[in-house]
Design a protein around this nucleic acid. Structure first.
Ligand SMILES: [Zn+2]
Ligand SMILES: [Zn+2]
Lengths: 680, 680
DNA sequence: CAGGCATGCCTG
DNA sequence: CAGGCATGCCTG
């Protein structure tokens, strides 16, 4: 399981696994084999997790990558809508089982009953804070009770009393005063902005060193002298125990640190009354500002916070996600708590977007709350669809030559519609007969240029279909979606030349070396359509069959060149052509005959127009398989090349196992986070 | 100019521009307009460079990208085989000129006459060094002369005397003893290894923190008490002045630093006698080891060095390339100096490979040591060639649908050859007439998918050529390389929709929305080739001109469908057709006539065969422009799609200006380092 | 600012 | 170990 996946497992509410009730219960029952309270190393963690995966998932995750159930993703579109208490309904014991595992896996904060933040003494002076500030003078003294404030043995609900836990609580707690936080409306500053909040993944994305307004609100006035403490903690269980501070780089450079009271603090508050605190026992750092009631007519107070490292800072956060715990306190009592996931990064917009894409269903699946049945339906529908049909990937072409090539491709695709389908079929047969196999491996082993390879296994299930393809004499071509039978193998496009060899042929030309020497010209009679393999598909030829060739010029003027266009000609068209009635009837009869013959031979006679083919979807009149047509046109239309080729076939990379479908049922959200764009 | 380009400009020998003799001479002549010795900012540097480019390159580099002379790259395939002294031979004054420019451009280290390393006092104790070490006891005292050891005013050759320059010399200097360094044979440990040395780019790639053996050798025994100092310096002029040390992160963590005498030193030497020095004046850090003569029978002594930061370390090297200056010294005199480019990175193998690919010619051009004349020849040959003609980029296609699309493209390209060129031209004209401009911008703004953009400026120099293209009625099409006149603009492929708009048209289909609804079908008579825009290009039609249409079946059987194939028919072919002599003569005369007309109208009548077109290069018999044909076939042949689309048109991304061809002649190596693979 | 590169590190 | 991702930063 990747870090990211672990990430996504966490319920969205801000409460982590660690503090889920059942989880805590198991802990208190003393599953303490690993509870030496040593933070687990990443390797140990991974190992445990793998083991766990083997046990609970019947090997699916650890062993069977990529998963057999490739469509799992489609099913659960709202991983974040589940919480563990909800999912346990179906089979309680298994649920419990799982929670057990959780405990063993994370094995952190065994003291972690729902704890609250310890009062810490302010350890650094604040030059900005004036002595006559509204900050209650009692605060410093209150918090100077100094080290080791152990919670009184039998005092009230523990979550009400501030203690000195290694791991502060990150459970949202509204408290008696209805403490809440929010961001300025996130759509005002979207991607350009220095920060952005994602409602979807409930996370703040913020650039380093910029101020970010956070609004606090209560429904009831808290007692005067209340303060708001903001403390960053690592989000993942493996890291929670470690104190969050700035990386040495940022803490030690002069930049941004000139005269600042707490250069090593990750979190700063622009409030002049801000106090930077560091707990003597735990070493945890936080910023404290007095809670001032909102101005009349205002609901909120706003504080400006700045994050002074990247989440990625080496030697600091080190790519480990953090949360900020905002806690309203009064005299060491926690009045309310709100947790905010934060990612400090260089490109908040980009990273938000990719997180959202990662953890949420693709556009089509955007609706929330599918029932499991709906999920199943989705899946079966999914198999009907062509993968990527809904996706358009633009390929911006740089460079004249490449542009020309693509332009040529586009033109070819459109002009291809003037080639009768039968001709195409014959061409293909001829291609096959000419046996163009030998060369491609050389091409694909050109050393010095990168090839796109997305790391998926080669498509080799095509092999048994080769022959079927060549028995397919009708016009359906190679593009039949439903059966897949007519698909030719992808010779040069597989990963290994070995496989290619074993296929024994490819759709390549015979000569592969790009030799520009004219001596390599083929003799002119070696053209592809040799020896009677071609029938006359021109209108002219067709007209001459019944002696009307002198009308071919008229047809030509109307744009009709080939007989496959006959399907598109109406009697009205003929009227427009100023053909003498008798000839017209003759021709019309010829058209009818042609169509009949055409239908009989199952040749698709769809006419694709040059300039409009792009948007023509299936011609429905004759019901043949027109997938091929559709696809070509689709492509052409955009003048885009689909090179976003791979893995996003099920476009939501956040897969969730169908729990009812698996042996152990209630596994946590598993996601394969592999939405890879072709970039760099 | 990018950083990388600046990089590649440096001569390979290890001597940088800065210390080229002419360069130094110019400096000493006092071109000091910018010599305030303030390190230039990157922006200033870039600006100067651009200006310089405008002046010296007649705008080629800065303005005219892609360059008109796209084949410049082909010319100098071995940039590293040149040194400035060599290149100056042809026209010395121009050479000088250029060097001037260099001075102004870099404007660093104005004190930079060929200087040598200053004696520095050892500032940190070395716990490993035993008192009875072979390290001459004089060394510490010698170097303890303490700050500001200014070179004596009139002492011998300055490069022989150690001084205290801000910028140490990085010129290789063998000295009287023949001081040389080398790496262990680099092929023994290639990619798996913790380090690797590239002979091609003359650079050591090494993982951080691992030891790397470096061998030292002299041809004559240096005096006893000689030492070897190793000092890292930044390679780029912009950075040379800055002292190289470890980043705060690595310097401050305990890891690797436990008890080490110099945790902030980037360079460590495993030698127990190593002494870590920091110059009091310049602050430069170095490691010093005694030079012990090799064991009997050995040529070398070997020292193990370790690099304690990444070249990329934030707050440290910060992605700035460094060199290590190995200097043999004796009593403050420099006996020899050797400079080693070093990159400390996580993946030496990968990074070496990519550097080599970047800075060196493609496979075809692998031969070394072209003379300048050869270079010229190459160039003139080069202009005949299409850029990228020699390069094959494989696109490994993943996914059935994409494979199908590409297969279809391949087929289209081959089948396209059955469309007469005139038809194609008419099609294009029709496309134009239908005015397909409006839509593409919409397509290109599809939101959720990445598009490939290599960051180069849009190709907008095409604009003045639009009309020319449409007056070009012959078959040359849009692909004429030499004049470039017939090239259509790249409508959807530019960066901005604005530009597209201004071009007024594109080769797009009219409809751009990928609407699959059948209601969007165009009426069948709205096909592309409407209203007399098409001439009959069939053999059938042609035969009927002189009453031989009854032979069209025979022609058809031979594979001749269209008149553009007539060029390929010989009289012998007619003999084979069992045509009555009189008819044969008639037909042959028709063929002759056709060819004459064809030649008159300059229509290329090259016949491209279906399956073999791929490898047919230019048909030489009629001398028309066949570039277009050639390209299509090239593409098809490989069944690869050139989507490595951009900047590497001349496939060696390390471009070097042909100096004799430019106003100022001897410009430094200019390279566009943009070999970008589409990966992830 | 968007595209894309560079580069440490993670994953199979 | 190779492929590929993540993510700061550079470039047009
Ligand atoms: Zn930092
Ligand atoms: Zn470092």
């Amino acid at each position: 399981m990747s870090q990211e996946e672990a990430e996504c497992m966490t319920p969205p509410s801000g409460s982590s696994l660690l503090h889920d009730k059942s989880f805590d219960r198991s802990i208190s029952q003393g599953s303490d084999r690993l509870s030496q309270s040593q933070p687990l190393s990443q390797e140990t963690f991974n190992q445990l997790w793998t083991t766990l995966g083997d046990i609970t998932d019947n090997g699916y995750y650890a062993r069977d990558y990529p998963p057999r159930h490739g469509n799992l993703t489609q099913i659960v579109t709202q991983p974040l809508d589940f919480s563990f208490s909800e999912t346990g309904v179906a089979d309680l014991d298994i649920h419990e089982n799982r929670i057990e595992m959780e405990v063993e896996r994370y094995q952190i904060g065994p003291e972690g009953t729902i704890t609250s933040l310890a009062p810490v003494s302010s350890s650094s002076s604040n030059p900005y804070s004036s002595p006559d500030s509204a900050m209650p003078s009692s605060v410093p003294s209150d918090y100077s009770t100094d080290h080791g404030v152990t919670p009184p043995p039998y005092t009230p609900p523990p979550q009400m009393m501030a203690s000195t836990p290694t791991v502060p609580s990150n459970t949202d707690y509204m408290g008696d005063y209805g403490f809440e936080i929010s961001m300025a409306s996130s759509q005002t500053l979207s991607k350009t902005a220095t920060w952005t909040y994602s409602d979807l993944v409930k996370k703040l994305y913020v650039r380093m060193g910029v101020t970010c307004p956070i609004k606090f609100k209560t429904h009831t006035r808290p007692p005067p002298g209340s303060i708001i403490r903001a403390m960053p903690v690592f989000k993942r269980p493996e890291h929670v125990k470690e104190v969050v501070k700035r990386c040495p780089n940022h803490a030690s450079t002069k930049e941004n640190n000139e005269g600042h009271p707490a250069p090593a603090h990750l979190l700063r508050c622009e409030n002049v009354q801000a106090q930077y605190a560091e707990d003597h026992t735990t070493g945890r750092q936080s910023v404290v500002v007095p809670y001032e009631n909102p101005q009349v007519g205002t609901e909120y107070i706003t504080c400006l916070y700045a994050f002074m490292c990247f989440s990625s800072c080496v030697g600091g956060l080190n790519r480990r996600p953090i949360q900020v715990i905002f806690q309203m306190e009064k005299d060491g009592l926690v009045l309310g708590r709100r947790v905010l996931d934060v990612r400090i990064c260089a490109c908040p917009g980009r990273d938000r977007k990719s997180d959202e894409k990662r953890c949420h269903p693709p556009p089509k699946q955007m609706k929330r709350g599918f029932s499991k049945t709906a999920g199943f339906q989705m899946m079966s529908v999914g198999t009907k669809k062509r993968k990527g049909d809904d996706d358009v990937y633009t390929l911006t072409v740089r460079g004249r030559e490449n542009y020309e090539i693509l332009l040529k491709i586009k033109e070819s695709l459109e002009l291809m519609s003037y080639i009768p389908q039968n001709t195409v079929n014959q061409y293909r047969a001829q291609q096959h007969r000419q046996g163009s196999h030998p060369s491609l491996s050389r091409t694909s082993t050109y050393p010095s240029h990168g090839s796109i390879n997305n790391g998926l296994p080669p498509i080799n299930s095509f092999a048994p279909r080769h022959d079927a393809r060549y028995h397919n004499e009708n016009g359906g071509g190679f593009d039949e979606t439903d059966s897949g039978i007519a698909l030719p193998p992808p010779p040069a496009l597989t990963n290994g030349p070995t496989m290619m060899e074993s296929q024994g042929f490819s759709h390549q030309s015979v000569m592969s070396q790009a030799d520009t020497s004219p001596t390599h010209q083929m003799p002119s009679n070696a053209i592809c359509f040799s020896q009677s393999s071609i029938q006359d598909m021109t209108i002219n030829g067709w007209l001459s069959k019944f002696g009307c060739e002198n009308y071919s010029e008229i047809f030509r003027k109307k744009g009709y060149l080939f007989i496959h266009q006959l399907d598109a000609i109406t009697i009205e068209d003929l009227d427009d052509m100023k053909i003498s009635p008798r000839q017209k009837d003759k021709i019309w009869k010829g058209i009818i005959d042609h169509r009949a013959a055409d239908n009989f031979s199952s040749t698709p006679s769809m006419m694709r127009t040059g300039s409009n083919a792009s948007t023509v979807s299936l011609h429905s009149q004759s019901g043949e398989n027109h997938q091929q047509v559709y696809h070509a046109t689709r492509f052409t239309l955009k003048q885009v090349l689909s090179v976003k080729l791979e893995k996003d076939k099920d476009t939501s990379p956040c897969k969730e196992g169908m729990k009812e479908d698996m042996e152990d049922g209630d596994t946590p959200r598993r996601m394969t986070l592999r939405d890879r764009n072709i970039k760099h």
